[in-house]
Design a protein around this nucleic acid. Structure first.
Lengths: 133, 133
DNA sequence: AATAATATTGTTATAATATAACAATGCGTT
DNA sequence: AACGCATTGTTATATTATAACAATATTATT
């Protein structure tokens, strides 16, 4: 039996490395620009690496921004429960790591009869800096 | 002083009408196709109407799907607090209207010093139908 | 009624984001 | 060696969204 992938491939490492260095969300085509010196020439190479990295939880996608950010949560193995705060002025994005919140949302049930296996939450507002401007 | 808009313009009505009829999220270019018989010819006409309708809360954007859905919540005047359940199999989307949840999230504060004015939450899973297949 | 302020419309072109399709290679398992 | 599968490379194209400019419409104020 072929095992599930436990390592990162060359392109996946290159892309993850770039996103981790950034410390802020990056757009796919910015990543492409950054990694061209390392040999990745086509959008698809970046998107494929991103897909896998998102799947295994190393990277999260900020859906409202079409941008990708490295997971800071060292134990985040799967990206099935994500929460972010987004400053609408400077666009600073921070991953929220709050066990009460994640517990609350993971256990949330409504009357639809649907059991949720995953969620993504994005908060918007002004960060400290921008609030005081 | 010029007052804030209280009515819908022609294009806004046409677009809202189409989205409300759908009862499910529509893509912008599907809307464009639908409303071409009513004279809207260009993507921008649709996007501009959508922008306004989202701003005033008549329509919500499902960020993870790049799709737009009418607000079912009759009292939803501003779209500053939205939650949806999304079936990953059939793509059925339902707006969650749960006062405990919205209260919890509206009052949520973390240690970032950021006060949130808005949020969007998307739950993923399998709906009743798809679960039993 | 004329003016000003703002929102809306129409239009063409283009930017930005993402995937399809196909061929080849690499790597662990049988 | 043969198989299965993930990854890679590549070209082309699909999908989603906005820029820029000119014109018209609506409403509030003078």
């Amino acid at each position: 039996m072929v095992q599930k992938q436990e390592y990162l491939s060359k392109n996946q490492k290159i892309v993850l490395d770039d996103v981790e260095k950034a410390n802020q969300p990056l757009k796919a085509y910015s990543i492409l620009y950054n990694v061209q010196k390392k040999g990745l020439k086509a959008p698809l190479q970046v998107y494929r690496a991103l897909d896998k990295l998102v799947e295994i939880g190393k990277i999260h996608k900020i859906e409202s921004r079409n941008a990708f950010v490295a997971c800071k949560n060292s134990n985040c193995v799967v990206s099935n429960a994500t929460a972010f705060s987004i400053c609408e002025s400077c666009e600073k994005v921070t991953e929220i790591n709050n066990s009460k919140l994640s517990k609350y949302l993971s256990n949330f049930e409504d009357n639809s009869g649907m059991k949720y296996s995953k969620y993504n939450l994005e908060f918007f507002g002004l960060c400290k800096k921008c609030k005081n401007k």
